[in-house]
Amino acid sequence: MSIFQDANRKQIANRRRVDWLLHILFVIATSVGVLALCALIIDVLVDGVARLQPQLFTEFPSRKADGSGMKSALVGTVYMLLIMLPLSFVLGVGAAIYLEEYAGKNRLTRLIQLNISTLAGVPSIVYGILGLTIFVRLMSLDRSLIAGAFTMTLLVLPIIIVSAQEAIRAVPKSRRDASFALGATKWQTVSRSVIPSSLAGILTGVILAMSRAIGETAPLVMIGALTYVAFLPNSLMDSFTVMPIQIYNWISKPQLEFKELAASGILVLLALLLIMNFSAIMLRNKYQKNV
């Protein structure tokens, strides 16, 4: 009896140890990411907080760090978001609705599905080359704001489709059945039952995709977003620049002051990202309560 009990106690102690070890491991896994982000933010804050002044938002770039701002880059980024948001929302959610609600479950749909998932993982520079060929050259939109926005729309589309599909799939089948049972058509069911219940998830996906887009540089460099732009684009066909390009330009300058300026630029970009992600969370909470 006592032998049996001892063995048991040992086993339990062992399990506890494993449990405790894994607990520590998971804490470490979490803190690696969080600590890296903290280190980045602290580093950037130290360098950039001194130059976080109104001129950053009101001035155009200049060869002198003291008079330099990122007005054109900030406005370029905002304009691009404004064009992208409705475009990618309509196209992305539309595609997701089709794939989830309308398309038959056949080989073709599976092929499309596979393609979209693959596209979500294609390196962004490839979208730049695609945009350069199609929008800049073939559609001769030149190196303009609209060509940039179209390219970025292509870039985020797969991400939006996949996340919207997941949100739609999470809606219980019983809801659709109930709607059909009341005599609703397919579109009535989709628009009044499925989408409202999945909207939180869809919007979260859209906003997260947008925040990915504002940090992207490679595709825009490829299609020819410019480095020195001392004016605001006032038509869709105008040249433009965006924040990450402006920041990169400042970092690669030899003068130390520009590195500080780049740090404050990064702070602005981070703030914008945080606001967007925060609003994604707020939206999700708001709509989840309603459902």
Binding site: S191, S197, L199, Y287, N290
Partner: peptide, 13 residues
């Protein structure tokens, strides 16, 4: 209510 919310967002977009 939900439908209204969705439409509102679509409209504002």
């Amino acid at each position: 209510l939900k439908a209204k919310g969705f439409k509102g967002i679509l409209m504002s977009g």
